[in-house]
Design a protein around this nucleic acid. Structure first.
Lengths: 336, 336
DNA sequence: CTGAAAGCGCTTACAG
DNA sequence: CTGAAAGCGCTTACAG
């Protein structure tokens, strides 16, 4: 591949001048610039970003480590992150941790080795020594998005779903449901714990308990949603409504319910955290708590780039909202 | 950040020895190796991958340019690509072209600038000078996945859906549908054209025509599926069945059908190319043509790595299969 | 406005 | 088994 030297000799200037011309440095004579550009063009020259990065100590690349690309919430998040990053002049490398802490650590190690300028992480459950160490060392600017690890000095950009969960419980209560169950995420993920807590507190406002057998410990993936829902249905007193802490576990719940020949909402009500386009077309359309996912991703990138470029980065909390559809029953005709 | 020099001086050896010790070069005395590893460890040394890449002229990185990350088919493809790449020791950088040829070209330029070792592309519709030039120059090993650009000397890893489309038409015909319409992709994408052609040929086997007004020219995105379906429904003789050439356009079709207060399959049958988990839970569950998406992604990576490592790369064609659900009507009770 | 030179952090052929 | 040295392709402070 043509290098800067080739361009320099063809244009009859030094490599320093080629570099300046190509980087729009002001101190380059107009016709020198023209000659350089022509030479670069005829040689099909593409500057070597690796060499530039080594020299400038910047890669103009962001790392994004998420727990599951196949989860539509994270897909949308990743897309927003990439869009905003591109707008700010950065590329992004995505690492998919698949909810496995060691895969997450593997990605972080690789990304740091590549000298990305900054790191966006939505931490998975479990021990993640590399993540902790990277955050603690503070050499790579980092921002948590969606989920966080308490106790680390890292800004977090997240959504607060407390109000929306309260709205959901109001909705369920109004319909007449009293036995409410939740499929939570891994306890060690902040979102996993928060959503269950919010649910419990919302129930308490009606004097309703959240017994242990109505709390499922899922992992944000389809299989756990299914398994936990089967457990609920096997109970002597199955719940009247199930709230899944993410969309994949809701999908698993639908699988389980359908396999038993039961119907939503006639036999059991269902709602999910995270809204996705398909929920409009499920049978029935699913009531869900919608995060402003695009805003979340963009805010995270801005916070990270602020850190990278030496500005102070603030944590950001956005607000989720309840989207009522038909999966919890109709409000009009009281309970069933 | 600690560099190889720091490790060298702490271990009392040269940087050459540090490099060898860290890269498991055989010619390093055991205790020297130990001393180096200890030094690296206490300094929290992470080798600078940028410098290494500059020196070795390899980045151990693959580029993947796809047309739409939000399309579950591509999400799954990307995931498989990343898994296989990791298994072979490569990272992957994803570029989302959003079905825009210039965004696609932007990503290719960026990736080539980063000196990725190889490029996997699912080309978008339209003029893509950078893509063509990159393929023609042949400096960056390239493999097309899913879609291709005819006339370029680039291996392609794809799925053949001809048989599955024939099965679909058999299925529709058996149910009694005779007026069959198709929502195609952009004519310039190979998959866009192939799926429509396969459909047309399958109809011909029954002596059924595929009139122009039953051919929609979509762009693989939700909006076009909706718009085209509305057009179909506005026809004097609306089709009895609609085949959408990807899952997002099928989603758009469902939107349009629902808005008119019509039902699938009673009022109109619907089937899609690409099967996704949600199709099990739509109202009704959607009949779809399933690609072996994971295999596709993995085969593409292997073909690309073959090229990168100097082995000959072969094109690969996998086979799609029809998954019958309920969105075309029941075969048992003849037609409606 | 331009160039010579240093240097970013590695790897590796060469010599011993 | 180990080290000195060159060099990958850039950018940039310095000098003119």
């Amino acid at each position: 591949m043509a290098s800067i030297k080739d361009v320099a000799s063809r244009a009859g200037v030094s490599t320093a001048t080629v570099s300046r011309a190509l980087n729009n440095h002001p101190a380059v004579a107009p016709d020198t610039r023209t000659r350089v550009l022509e030479a670069a063009d005829t040689l099909g020259y593409h500057p070597n970003g690796v060499a530039r990065s080594l020299r400038t100590n910047r890669t103009r690349t962001l790392g994004l480590v998420i727990s599951d690309v196949l989860n539509p919430f994270f897909t949308e998040l990743a897309r927003a992150v990439e869009d905003e990053a591109r707008a700010l002049g950065y590329s992004v490398i995505i690492g998919n941790a698949d909810e496995q802490p060691d895969l997450q650590d593997h990605h972080i190690r690789t990304l740091v080795g590549r000298r990305i300028d900054g790191l966006l992480v939505s931490p998975a459950d479990g021990e993640a020594p590399v993540l902790r160490e990277t955050a603690r060392a503070g050499r790579t600017p980092m921002v948590f998005v969606d989920r966080s690890i308490p106790g680390l000095d890292v800004p977090v950009v997240r959504t607060d779903g407390t109000g929306a969960v309260r709205d959901l419980v109001d909705h369920l209560h109004r319909i007449g449901h009293r036995r409410l169950a939740v499929i939570g995420g891994p306890a060690a993920t902040t979102t996993g714990a928060e959503r269950v807590d919010a649910f419990r507190h919302a129930l308490a406002r009606y004097g309703l308990p959240l017994p242990d057998e109505y709390i499922g410990h899922g992992d944000f993936q389809v299989g756990s949603g299914r398994r936990i829902t089967e457990g609920f249905l096997d109970l002597e007193q199955p719940p009247q409504a199930v709230f899944a802490a993410d969309n994949l576990m809701a999908l698993g719940a639908m699988d389980a319910i359908r396999e038993r020949g039961l119907r939503v909402p006639q036999d059991i009500a269902l709602a999910a955290f995270d809204d996705i386009p398909w929920f409009l077309h499920t049978a029935p359309p699913l009531t869900a708590i919608a995060q402003p996912t695009g805003d979340l991703g963009r805010a995270a990138v801005r916070a990270l780039v602020d850190r990278i470029e030496g500005r102070p980065a603030r944590s950001v909390t956005l607000t989720a909202t309840l989207v009522v559809r038909r999966s919890c029953g109709a409000t009009e005709r009281s309970s069933r």
